[in-house]
Design a protein around this nucleic acid. Structure first.
Length: 115
DNA sequence: GCTGTGACTCCTT
DNA sequence: AAAGGAGCCACAG
């Protein structure tokens, strides 16, 4: 096919990746960007969510790499996201999502949890 | 074209 | 877990 504007295509891939997140699960911005074939464009993904208010898009399932909500605590959007996540069965505490990520130290990151 | 800004990420302390 | 600093990409002024 013709070489349609890459931006639009990438946008579609990002949205697809976000919609692919299972209910009750979360994914990081970098994770989404990687799945969309755009390594290192986590910020771009964030800007997409900020600008394009897609309908039916589970934007609340997208969190930061450390498992925390990207919005500042106390913000309206922050509470909304936390509320939606809890409604889907995600354990959210202190603006942080537990049970998925939340790496703490380099040791745990490289060596991971005791297998 | 340089500067500032942001729903980011990684490393070090 | 939290805080500081550097790197990164896209966009507005």
């Amino acid at each position: 096919m013709t070489v349609a504007s890459g931006t639009q295509e990438a946008e579609a891939r990002v949205f697809a990746a976000i919609r692919a997140i299972a209910v009750g699960e979360v994914a990081g911005y970098g994770e989404i960007a990687r799945r969309a074939g755009l390594p290192g464009r986590a910020r771009w993904v964030a800007r997409l969510l900020a600008t394009a208010g897609e309908d039916g898009l589970p934007w609340h399932r997208v969190v930061r790499s450390d498992g925390r909500i990207a919005f500042p605590p106390g913000s309206k959007e922050h509470r909304e996201q936390a509320r939606r996540l809890r409604a889907e069965g995600v354990d959210v505490a202190g603006g942080r999502v537990r049970g998925s990520m939340a790496r703490a130290t380099l040791d745990e990151t490289l060596w991971g949890p005791p297998r």
